[in-house]
Design a binder for these strands. Structure first.
Length: 832
RNA sequence: GCCGGGGUGGCGGAAUUGGCAGACGCUCUGGACUUAAAAUCCAGUGGGGGGAACCCCGUACGGGUUCGAGUCCCGUCCUCGGCACCA
């Protein structure tokens, strides 16, 4: 077999006797990454005079498995957007860092018997190299690492501010406990009753816990969502999570005792229909009101409930169980005596942990009443639609009626609408001091402590005399000790509790011996404020200077996965609001705009190392180059939608870039100075369309716009002009930056293509003198014709109706109507 | 159960305000170049009918509004997320 004669000379290949331009990304890409680095092009300046733009990626947890093409999606998006913003005249801050504390590093360390900081450092180095090959414009001079003492010193500082504001407190309470991770969890970390991280069903465990009073901010966290340019879906998820509902607290006296049972209800209008009450089994009143006859049964039931996991209590089995306490309460509206039950469908930590049960108008109460033969009394009658009277329809209920209507069997309140009755009944009771309007939330305070090693030590000291004493700010950071044994103890104590040299200290206040807090902060702590640190990452005096933080913040564009819709994004908003209240910063929302990129799937499943379906970028880069992979990631589908990896389709993008490169390089030597009208029109239309698609984040169609334009340029026989070639090059720069730099030099420039600015559109070129008008009969297209842009409707109608192609459709019929959409369409409506 | 997103060729997807459905890419077929291949280029590619010009059907399904519906309204099915005994 003969070896073909092929020599590469720069960008030209000599193949079989002719010179051909070849696109060889391997020869192009590394040198431009060097060039950008050398010229510090990725670093954001505060004194450039350009308006600031802060574009942020959700920083990664540096896992051992590295990046796959799914991770690329968000990073490519943010990089293309950042570069576009830069070309559009902004000074762009686009930093990157590491969310480096957390369980996987710790578990991995235990397995490999290697300190977590070592594995973490190695993973970070690997991630950084991978990100580097992406050609992304990250400002590495601002890199942060949440597990470094220089960083977590300030995480601890922020904790102290929260403590001083009364937002951090300790409380003994049952918390979610993951038996596998051997640590407490926040509510947000429990998914379907199981640990979000490892899937083990969580149990309840009574523990003294550090808590953050996020519920104090519930109203602001939900109200301020309105001002954010976020996906509606995410805003709704947060609002649902916070779960604000307005209702009333009503107190019922217990018969023959001094106790009162307070309930929360959103339906005070149904008070006459309350036929029994239910307390959560853990409710403190249970022991006091239970009669001796019922004691054994009640105690057994309480024990049974406490033994149930959250999973089986709330998710698997919703059949109603419960026990009568033997006690009765007095309904304050009609003095009726109703039995008090306990049942596990009432949760201790929502509302007051007790309810008035209205089986006729609540599905759960209905099920319970049916199961235990309790009375069901209808007090709301649906009002037939269109009926003006308040005619009632009192039929036997087969299910709870939860709709609107008017009150019946409700004494003086009969006939009122549900809405009116809610107010009237509460105000009636309020006058006697036994009820008031109130608001309840699903959001709970945040369990802010983990019993693990690899996290920020909580900077407080326990002193026998002074109680809980914060570590003085000047003594921060409280360093995580270098230790040999960091296995979780499982006893509820952190591994730090076993380190005498760490635990034993002196009280900052009275100087007597004292013990350090040994719990660490949850993984979310560091990510609650990293976006602030990026604005001033090397500050040793404070977490950030006011000047810098207020200059760059808030983040203008935040890009990341939707999996953080509630957790991280809610916590970060809470920290921001608290710091705003502490007057540390002058804004109270961190992320003005949020974009959630879709996942990358393979065989319909989310790409992940554990599922064994990852596609690694490395070999793709070797084969096609970074620019091709970048553009493919954008082309694969709408950026917010999950996309299936298609190994074939990347070829198309590669072909396109090769074509583009050849077009520019081959045309450059004989590019004309001036452009024909045709080329001008093509160019301005292209830029117009491109910009529009870009601004609306339709990146997949951005790539098509390039393909169409380059295709059109190839079809043109005349030589291309400089303006066309340069515009195309500049426009390509955000997406295929290496290729754009290369082409820009070929076009004779010495400086970076990013010194240019995004091209303007001259609207004059968007208008055609001749336009195509679609000709329809009864809405069906029968022909099209070219007409002068300024033609009158009469002219167009007469020309169109005379078209040969229309004859058959108009013959023997009368035109009863004519619709004309200027410059677009004429439609004849015919009859007969 | 509740809340949200989505259903368009063989495939990924376009169609921004109701106005040419299927842009762009992949796949496949044919052709050019080549001793041959790769690469590249050209043509075709929703279904059906016809020799042809053309005609009919077609955006999950069933209705409706409209001169005109992928787009708006009502109902149904499927699918993917989120929440889930939150009173």
């Amino acid at each position: 077999m003969k070896v073909p004669f092929c020599v590469l000379i720069g960008q030209f290949a000599y193949i079989g006797g002719i010179y051909m331009v070849t696109y060889d990304p391997r020869a192009i890409e590394p040198k431009w990454r060097e060039f950008w680095k050398e010229h510090h092009m990725d670093e954001a300046q505060t004194d450039s005079g350009r308006p600031k733009y802060y574009c942020l990626d959700m920083f990664p947890y540096p896992s051992g498995s590295g990046l796959h093409v799914g991770h690329w999606r968000g990073y490519v998006l943010s990089d293309a957007w950042s570069r576009y913003k830069r070309l559009s005249g902004y000074e762009v801050l686009h930093p990157m860092g590491w969310d480096a504390f957390g369980l996987p590093a710790e578990n991995d360390a235990i397995k490999k018997k290697l300190h977590p900081s070592i594995g973490t450092a190695r993973n970070i180095a690997n991630f950084k190299e991978q990100l580097d090959r992406m050609g992304a414009m990250f400002d590495w001079s601002r890199e942060v690492n949440t597990s470094s003492p220089e960083y977590y010193k300030w995480t601890q500082w922020i904790f102290l501010q929260l403590f001083k504001m009364g937002l951090a407190y300790r409380k003994e309470m049952p918390i979610n406990w993951c038996p596998s991770c051997k640590t407490g969890l926040a509510n947000e970390e429990v998914v379907d009753g199981a640990c979000e991280r490892c899937g083990t069903p969580v149990t309840r465990r009574n523990m003294m816990q550090w808590m953050l009073r996020i519920t104090d901010y519930a109203d602001r966290l939900v109200d301020d969502l309105d001002q954010l340019d976020w996906p509606e879906k995410v805003k709704k998820m947060q609002a649902n999570w916070i779960g604000r509902s307005t209702g009333a607290r009503i107190r019922f006296a217990v018969v023959g005792a001094e106790y009162e049972v307070e309930v929360f209800t959103t339906r005070p209008d149904t008070l006459y229909g309350a036929t029994y009450m239910v307390l959560a089994p853990e409710h403190p009143l249970v022991q006091q009101i239970t009669t001796t006859e019922q004691l054994a049964q009640v105690e057994a039931y309480v024990e049974q409930t406490l033994g149930k996991s959250q999973l089986s209590r709330q998710i698997i089995d919703k059949t109603k169980t419960g026990v009568f306490t033997g006690a009765y309460a007095v309904n304050p509206i009609n003095q009726e005596q109703i039995p008090i039950w306990i049942a596990d469908y009432v949760l201790l930590d929502y509302g007051t942990g007790a309810i008035m049960a209205v089986p006729a108008h609540d599905e759960r109460d209905f099920d319970f009443a049916k199961a235990f033969g309790l009375q069901i009394r209808q007090v709301i009658a649906p009002v037939a639609q269109g009926s003006a009277s308040d005619a009632v329809n009192l039929s036997e209920l087969t299910e709870a009626y939860t709709g609107l209507g008017r009150l019946v069997q409700s004494g003086a309140f009969n006939g009122l609408t549900v809405e009116d009755a809610k107010e009237r009944i509460v105000s009636t009771l309020a006058q006697k001091g036994i009820a008031e309007q109130t608001v309840s939330y699903k959001l709970r305070d945040w369990v802010f402590a983990r019993q693990r090693y690899w996290g920020e030590p909580i900077p407080v000291v326990h002193c026998e005399d002074c109680g809980i004493v914060p570590v003085p700010e000047e003594d921060l950071p409280v360093l995580l000790p270098e230790i040999e044994q960091y296995e979780p103890t499982g006893t509820g104590d952190s591994p730090l509790a076993a380190i005498e040299s760490f635990v034993n200290t002196t009280c900052p206040s009275c100087k007597k011996p004292a013990r350090r807090e040994t719990d660490t902060m949850p993984q979310w702590a560091g990510s609650c404020w990293y976006f602030l640190r990026f604005t001033d990452p090397h500050n040793h005096e404070e977490p950030f200077s006011r000047e810098n933080v207020n200059y760059w913040m808030p983040v203008d564009m935040y890009i990341g996965g939707v999996e953080h819709a509630v957790l991280h994004l809610l916590y970060a908003r809470f920290f921001t609001k608290a710091l705003y209240d502490r007057k540390v910063i002058n804004f109270d929302e961190p992320f003005t705009r949020l974009f959630n990129q879709g996942m990358m799937t393979l065989n319909g499943v989310k790409m992940s190392k554990s599922k064994g379906n990852v596609v690694s970028p490395e070999e793709l880069i070797d084969r096609y180059g970074t620019d091709t992979l970048r553009m493919y990631e954008l082309f694969v589908g709408p950026p917010e939608i999950d996309a299936e990896w298609n190994p074939r389709a990347i070829e198309g993008v590669y072909r396109f870039l090769g074509k583009t490169y050849r077009l520019i390089v081959e045309s450059a030597p004989h590019a004309t100075k001036t452009a024909s009208t045709q080329l001008q029109k093509l160019r301005h239309r292209f830029v117009h369309q491109l910009t529009e698609r870009l601004e609306s984040f339709r990146f997949n169609t951005v790539v098509s716009a390039f393909m169409e334009y380059v295709g059109a340029l190839q079809d043109i026989s005349e030589p291309l002009d400089r303006g066309t070639l340069e515009t195309l090059t500049v426009c390509l720069a955000p997406f295929a930056p290496h290729l754009a730099e290369e082409c820009y030099r070929t076009l004779g420039h010495d400086e970076s293509v990013f010194a240019r600015s995004w091209p303007n559109v001259d609207p004059a070129y968007l208008i055609d003198e001749e336009v195509e008008v679609v000709v329809q009969v009864n809405g069906k297209i029968r022909d099209r014709m070219m007409v002068d842009r300024n033609s009158s409707e009469e002219h167009i109608a007469s020309r169109a109706s005379g078209l040969e192609t229309l004859a058959a459709h108009l013959e023997g019929k009368t035109i009863v109507k004519q619709i004309y959409v200027p410059g677009k369409l004429i439609n004849f409506v015919v009859r007969g």
